[in-house]
Structure formats: structure tokens, C-alpha cells
Write a protein that binds this DNA or RNA. Sequence first.
DNA 1: TTTATTTACGCAAACGTTCCCGATAACGAT
DNA 2: ATCGTTATCGGGAACGTTTGCGTAAATAAA
Lengths: 362, 362
Amino acid sequence: MKFEAVTIKDIARALGISTSTVSRALRDSYEISPETKQLVLDCAEKLNYRPNPIALSLKERRSRSIGVIVCEIANNFFSQVINGIESIAYDRGYNVIVSQSRESYEREVIDLQYLASRSVDGLLISLSTETNDLSHLKSLHAKGFPIVFFDRITEEINTHRVIVDNFRGAYDATEHLIKNGHKRIAVISNSEFLSITHERVAGYKEALIANGHEVNEHYVQHCFYGGMIFEEIEDAINKLFTQRNKPDAIFATSDKLTTGCLKTLKRRGLKVPDDVSVVGFSNTDIAELIDPPLTVVRQPAIEMGKAAIELLLQLIESKRPIKEFEKRILTPELQIRESSIKKTAKVAEDLTLRAKPIHLQE
Amino acid sequence: MKFEAVTIKDIARALGISTSTVSRALRDSYEISPETKQLVLDCAEKLNYRPNPIALSLKERRSRSIGVIVCEIANNFFSQVINGIESIAYDRGYNVIVSQSRESYEREVIDLQYLASRSVDGLLISLSTETNDLSHLKSLHAKGFPIVFFDRITEEINTHRVIVDNFRGAYDATEHLIKNGHKRIAVISNSEFLSITHERVAGYKEALIANGHEVNEHYVQHCFYGGMIFEEIEDAINKLFTQRNKPDAIFATSDKLTTGCLKTLKRRGLKVPDDVSVVGFSNTDIAELIDPPLTVVRQPAIEMGKAAIELLLQLIESKRPIKEFEKRILTPELQIRESSIKKTAKVAEDLTLRAKPIHLQE
DNA sequence: TTTATTTACGCAAACGTTCCCGATAACGAT
DNA sequence: ATCGTTATCGGGAACGTTTGCGTAAATAAA
């Protein structure tokens, strides 16, 4: 199955010169005469020579590829992040190797081992929901292996991080619900281990308090696998709606939770926003098409990917070890639509008018 | 920035034995004594030795990684395909390197060069919309480089292919519209160069003919960039609705076209399905949440990814060159919801009842 | 003419592995 | 005592490159 490739040796043999001369000629070294260079170049062209990146990697101890670990590729948010990562990597001559942990700690560890044994120059990672032991990352990081965290980050390892202002996104979303007359706002969130959960739930609570509401822990539901298991969401909704004081609004803190929540409500026959309003973190490009048009806090996912890989390349390509690390915080955008507006006021009507200018994403 | 790694030499030096012995001990060769093996294994463990895959690649002339080229990662269909690809690759010990052509021929060529110069063992590709010259792929294929096409394929290169039954998907969708009383069914499709366009438009036309309808070329609109440029879709819709006989149904043949179409209709104030029905190819997981719930032909994207990489690995790992190639055709699924049902009949009501059992995708 | 300097190239080591070939010692068979 | 086996290990080439060093010839400076 192997298909033999033409190497620098083939050129050397064909021209009766040494491989070093060929190598230097190809790299346009000053110590090769113009005539020889031309000869080599022509021959390389004729033989359709392509340098072997693997040999180069071995020599230079760098593969010009970077690894990406996310919990799931087929997810609006993550696929957009990967899009951003790939676009910069392409420009800078790097390959991106993606793998998914599927929210499994075990797989994350294996993925990491697999990627890290020097086949990639650095790593971009958003932690799996199961991950609370970080020793696999710590040992690598201690050896100087470049890592940048994004989205689901950790404070335990000191390196670059890029996230959105989750606190603010949640705060704004919650406050928006309050301002629209909601009194009993529930939140459906991911595992409590995740940084995004902390920050988003904190933003939610702070908004309640700042607006004179009480925090009711019965209104705080966690889905450990973030909705990968659909029953989790159904359970959460069930718990919320079998309480004495049923919520009049739900704030879902991730893409999958938001859509899962909407599906469950629909199947249960609950009308949005009449029975319960909904706002959720989501990067779907069809929020405006949902019934009702969905109020979302949208993350600049592509920008996050770009920022993450730029920081990583900075780490990789730096001459001396970097000791100062950056936590880049991007701004999420609250896109207000009808799912969060009670039909009582005439606000809904205004909304329809406002619908057009709101962010025409391609 | 380099971080030194422990090699087989370090173990050899530490134990005062040769590298060949270490290598053999690690591979559990029969010609190494059990004691030495244990010694080596312990030492490797203690030093936290990890084999260098790059050195291995150079030696064995295989990288255990495969390349994937799609036009866009952040797309429901393609991200699901990549999901499938990654899952099998993971099991079989391969890395997946993804890159996106962004529908550009030029980028596809560069991506290919970049991947193919023996840094990947094989390629999975869905062609860009601009691609009609296939020489970049042909030359590689001629050298024996393993390639498998999926989704947007070509007949010009003889190798494995995996697609869905596009003809049937389109036929079923169109016939469904006809059976529901639609008389003037338009189609919005991708570039005419694309295989998927051919097949889907052919299915559409055949369904019309088989049901006694005429094919009206004014009802066939093409968007060259498949909706990456939003104006394309708006133009197509404009053309359709400025005709004397406005269509009473639209069949959109891709994910982006479908959602783009829906957005345009909504912004134009056209109600679905009252003013015009819609059915489209789409792999969104929230079709049921759209207003109105969207009838889609859904492709088994994950399965497509899995099939494609399995065929590729078969190509890669085969001892002798394979001459018999397979065209694997998966079956798309028509998921009927309300967007394609005229409100006149009481069909709509039935539909609501049927809504639940329809495919609970996680 | 001699010496110093430049020009233009080759040799060989190195990157981390694997593996073909020997080599040595121990041991039983002749 | 000699020979063929077997068990156990080391030497070194090879994968495709790059690069430090050496060196011959050519040129310039003396």
C-alpha cells in the first residue's frame, strides 16, 4: 500500500551531488551557486519533490500541529470554536488534530496522552464534565508543554485561558427576565464541577440579589452530563414543575441544555413564554426561527477559538519560557427575542419590530 | 520552549544496555530475558517513557493520522460526519486532522498539498463547490494515495465513495409535497457542479414527472455558494416570488439553504406553510422546535462518517493495492412535520399527534 | 609568487526508532 | 574435546532532513 515518495536523495543521485547541497539549494542557502540552485530546483520540480514533514518534525522536534480536545464536535458552540481555531492554524501553517472526550474523564486522559507524546506542539482544551483530577494536565504542563484552556477552564493550572464573561452573560440574562416581570426564575445548569457552571450560576444569583429577589436553591438544577443524556433534562424540568411554586422562567446555561429544555417543555405541553419563559446560552444560528424566537446569550465562539490558538502559538513559538499568563475574557451578547417576554404587556409587539436589526448572522 | 523527553537511549544509558535491547524489551520480544524485560519496563515506568510517534512514523512511513477536508466545520451535517469519523479513528488508533476549504477550490488544493505530503496516511474529502478541476486529487490518487469521497463526490476518480441516496431523499420529499396538494413546487439547490445537486434535483424532477407534474425550470434555483453568501438565497427567493405563478412549496437541498430560506421567508413576511410550504435537507437537531416544525430529509451523517473512515482504513491497511471500489449508499430519512402540510386539511392535526414518536434525537 | 580569503560543495552526525546481522556464552550431544 | 543449538544481547544501518565542520579550488591581497 505504501507509495514511494521522491526524497532529497533522489534529487542528489539524479544530479550526482550530495544531499546536503540539495537541501541547502532548496532552502536557498547563500553557499550554493546560482547554477546549482537552478539545477536542483528544476530537478525537484520535475520529480515533483515534496519535503517530508515527518523527517522535519523528528529533526526539529516540532510537528507543526496542535491538538484540540472538546467534549463534542457536533455542537454549535464547539464546532464554531474549532472553525476559528482552524482558520488561524491554517494561516500560520499548523495542522489541527481534533478529538472529543465525550464528557468522559477517562477519554480525556487517553486523548491527552495520545496527542501529547510530542506529536503535537501544544494543546487547546475545554475540560470534560467528569474531570476534577487534573494531574494528567499538570504533569504535562510542568514539563513545559504548552496548553491553553478555553471555555471550561481551571484555576489549578497557571497558563493562558480564554473564556467569555460568563458571569455577565448570566447576569444580563437573568436581569432581563426580572425586568420583564418574572418572579420565579429557575436555572438549569451543567455539572457543578465546571468553571462555566460556577460563573454562570453566580451571575444568575447575583442578578437576583441585586434586584431584590431571593435565591431559591430549589430553582437551581444541575445536569451532570449537560444534556448529553436527555433524561437529565427531563428530570430537571420535572423537579422544577412539581414544586409548589412553579417557576415562571427558565435560564438554561448551555447550548444542549437550552434546546433540551425547549424540547422537554414542548413535549410536556408547556407553552413558551405563556406558561414559562426561556432564555439560554446558545450558539445556534436559527434562534430566530424557533417557536417562539429564542432569547439567547450568544458566545463569540469563533473569536474564542482564534484567541485561544493565538495564545497557544505565542506559547509555542516563544524563545524563552513564558511566566506571565493572560486570562482573556470575551463579551457574550444577549440577543432578545420573544421567548423571554411575557405576552401580557405589549412588549411582544415591540419585539417583532425589533426582530430584524438583531444580528443577521450569515 | 522545547521540553526534553525521555527516549529509549535514556533507558539504555540508565541500565547500561543497548538501545536495541531496550526496544526489544519494550516490544516484548522473545529474545530478551524476562529479567531484562522487567528491568527495562520498570525503568521506562520510572522515567515516564513515552515512545516518539514521529520517529516511528519516519521509520514505518506511516503517520497513523488521516486528513479530512470539508467546506465548513461549523455546519450541522459536517460536524456530525466528523464526529463519526473521529469516533472510529479513535478506536483504531488514528488521529484526525481536519481542515476546511470554505468552498474555495484554491484552498482545497492547498489543504490537500499540505495534508498529503505524506503527513497523513489517507484522505476523506467532500469537494468544495468551486472544484471542477480534479487534477490535484487525480495525481495523488494515481500515486496510490488512499482517498475516500463522501457527500460531494466525483465519478472521475475511481475509489470508495459514500453518500446518501440523494435521489431518493429528494424524490420522497417532493412526492410528499405533491401528495399534500402542492402544485407549484420550487427547488433551491447548490451549485450545478456538485454531485449532490445533480442527484437531488434529478430526484425532484423525477418525482414531479412520475406524479404527472411538469418540470418548470423557473422553479429551479441554484445558489453557487450554497448559502454561505446570504444574498444568494435572498435572490433565489426573490426570483421565485416575482414570477407570475408563485410557488406554493419550496424544497431546499441543503442545511444552510434550508435555514437561509426559512430566514428569508420570515423576513419577507411569508408564512410557512400558509403562504408557502417548506421541506429541506437538514441535520439540525431542533427541527421540531422551529416555527412551524420543519419537515426535513435527514442524512445519517454520523454513519456516513463512520462508513467513510472504515473504507479509508481498509484502503490504508490493505497489503496489496485494491482495485475493486465500493459506492456505499446510505438511506436518508424523511421526517414529516408541519412546515410541509397545508393548513386547509385536517392533516395538520394528525401531525401534532404524530409529533412525539418522531425520532427523539438526544 | 606566496598568503589570506572567499566560494561552493561534501562528509557525517543527529533526531528516536526498529530490525537485520552478528557475537558471545552456556549447554547438551556427539 | 569438538560441534551445533539455544538464549541473550550489541552494533549499526536505515527512515529523510538539516547543519556544523572540513576542504578544495578560485580569487584577491600582499
